[in-house]
């Protein structure tokens, strides 16, 4: 499931599943036209896009994949930034 990742000097980044997490590669989502991006927007009643992202969890650095949590309820929260006030 959520395997631990070694803490190197690189800043690991997440990616949409099906896309390689390669920081050198031009980001394929940004390269898409606005219409294409709109086409992938979230709709209630539809599948949540799968992704893998690095995470900090109870003293460890791990990789989290959304689809590993099938069978459970998931709350996915985004926020503007660490050390902000709200």
């Amino acid at each position: 499931m959520a395997e631990e990742i070694p803490a190197g000097c690189a800043r690991p980044t997440g990616s949409v599943v099906g896309e390689k997490a390669d920081p050198k590669k031009k980001d394929s989502i940004e390269a898409k036209s606005e219409k294409e991006v709109r086409g992938t927007m979230i709709k209630v009643g539809k599948k949540a896009p799968d992704f893998t992202a690095p995470a900090y969890h109870k003293g460890k650095f791990i990789n989290v994949t959304l689809s590993d949590h099938l069978g459970k309820w998931v709350v996915l929260c985004f926020y503007p930034g660490d050390f902000t006030f709200v």
Partner: peptide, 29 residues
């Protein structure tokens, strides 16, 4: 990248807005 496909990434500010998604056991929003 993830925030962009979820439609909550603010490109001008370079940060995510406060998006909260409830996803059921089938992976449906």
């Amino acid at each position: 990248k993830v925030g962009t496909i979820y439609g909550i990434y603010d490109e001008d500010a370079g940060v995510e807005t406060r998006g909260r998604f409830i996803i059921d056991p089938d992976g449906v929003v």
